[in-house]
Amino acid sequence: MDWLGRQFSLDASRAAHDDPYTVLFDIGAGEVLEIPCAFSAFHDTELVEYTDAALASGFFEQWLRQHPEPIGFDQCAGYTVPLFLGGADEASNLSLTDLDVSWTLTGRLRAATRG
């Protein structure tokens, strides 16, 4: 997971030579993104060379300027108004929250607004 509470997972159904691809579950955006490379390349290249794209590191720096306290392993900076409900993708729309609470409540909102 990352600081926004997004979950990274492996997709064994998409694999290159027994090297599964990576999937990103973004609860704040209400999306599942297929990362177009095998896990080893994601870990060794994407996270190193494309840190901002993979982990929103620039956005994290903005967050830290406003919230210098550490984020606990069981916490995330969750969207106050999720992006799929029209929330702004900016640091002022984030608040420190319990990771489980963020996924549970935002997941319910996403399920209720689908279709």
Rank of each mutant, 00 (worst) to 15 (best):
E61W: 04
P68M: 09
G58K: 08
W63Q: 02
E69V: 12
E46P: 01
P36A: 01
D26S: 14
D26V: 11
L64D: 08
F59C: 04
F73T: 12
T22A: 09
L24G: 03
F25Y: 15
L55A: 04
E61R: 15
V32S: 06
Q75F: 00
E61D: 15
E34V: 08
F84V: 10
Y50L: 11
Y79Q: 00
A77H: 01
F60I: 05
D52H: 06
A53T: 11
I71H: 00
A53K: 10
V32Y: 02
T51V: 11
L47Y: 09
E34K: 08
P36V: 05
T22H: 02
P68I: 01
L24T: 07
Q62E: 12
A29S: 08
T80W: 00
F59E: 05
C76H: 01
P68H: 09
Y21P: 01
A77S: 08
E49R: 15
A77K: 12
Q62M: 11
D52C: 11
E61T: 14
E46W: 15
F42I: 01
C37M: 12
D44R: 14
V32H: 01
S40L: 04
A38C: 07
D44K: 14
I35H: 06
I35Q: 03
S40D: 06
L33C: 08
C76Y: 03
T45G: 10
D74H: 07
A56H: 07
F84L: 10
E69C: 08
G28T: 06
A41Y: 13
V32Q: 02
L24K: 14
Y50R: 14
I27G: 05
Q66V: 04
H67Y: 02
I27Q: 06
F25V: 15
I27V: 10
E69A: 15
G30M: 09
D44Y: 14
L33F: 11
Y50H: 15
G72T: 10
T80E: 09
E34W: 08
G30H: 06
V48L: 13
L47K: 13
V81D: 04
V48Q: 14
I27D: 04
V23W: 10
F42K: 09
G58D: 10
I35S: 06
P70C: 02
Q75H: 07
L47F: 01
T80V: 12
G30I: 05
L83D: 00
Q66K: 08
Q62A: 12
A77R: 08
L83W: 01
R65E: 13
V32P: 00
V32E: 06
E49G: 05
H67Q: 02
